[in-house]
Measured scan of single mutants.
Amino acid sequence: KEFRPGDKVVLPPYGVGVVAGIAQRSVSGVSRAYYQVDFPGSRSKAYVPVEAPHSVGLRKAL
């Protein structure tokens, strides 16, 4: 896996977040693995496909 729990990442347009782990989510009846990204200071979460994280701009924070 490219990202691990605890990694600081950037996800446009949300900003800097932390990978909380990998979650299985069902979309249109198909279960897939997603990185769960939490954003400190907020209750917001984002789910990014493990198979294509760069397709939505997910990258490691510098």
Rank of each mutant, 00 (worst) to 15 (best):
S42P: 07
R25T: 08
V27R: 06
I22A: 01
R32T: 10
V9S: 01
D7E: 08
Y47R: 00
K45A: 12
Y34M: 05
I22Y: 04
R59L: 07
R59E: 12
L62R: 10
V56F: 05
A46E: 06
Q24I: 15
A20Y: 05
L58R: 03
S44E: 13
D38Q: 11
Y35E: 05
P13Y: 08
G17M: 01
S28K: 13
A20G: 06
S31C: 14
I22S: 07
K8I: 15
V30P: 13
V48H: 15
L11Q: 07
V18E: 04
S44D: 12
P53G: 09
A46S: 06
F39Y: 02
A52Q: 07
Y35T: 01
F3T: 01
V16K: 07
R59I: 12
F3W: 10
V18R: 08
V50A: 04
Q36H: 05
V9E: 00
S28W: 04
A61R: 06
G15D: 01
D7V: 04
V27A: 06
V37T: 00
V30H: 11
Q24N: 12
Y47N: 02
V10E: 08
A20K: 11
I22E: 02
G6F: 03
Y35I: 13
V16H: 11
R25I: 15
A52R: 07
H54N: 09
S42A: 09
S42Q: 10
Q36Y: 07
R32A: 15
V16T: 09
K45F: 09
S44N: 12
G41V: 08
P12H: 09
Y35R: 00
Q36M: 13
S28R: 12
A33S: 12
V18W: 10
S28M: 11
Y14F: 12
A23C: 15
P53F: 06
S55E: 13
V19G: 00
G29A: 02
Q24V: 14
G57K: 05
A33G: 07
R32Q: 10
R59M: 05
V19K: 00
Y34R: 01
S26Y: 10
K60F: 07
V30R: 09
F39P: 00
S42K: 11
R32S: 11
P12M: 07
V9T: 02
V18Y: 11
S31R: 11
R32L: 10
V30D: 07
G29I: 01
K8H: 12
A61P: 05
P5F: 07
D7Y: 03
G17P: 02
V56K: 09
A52P: 04
P12R: 05
F3R: 01
F3M: 04
V16E: 11
F39I: 03
V10C: 13
D7R: 02
G57T: 03
Q24C: 15
Y35F: 08
Y34Q: 02
G15M: 03
G15I: 02
R43S: 13
P49I: 04
D38E: 14
R32Y: 08
L58P: 03
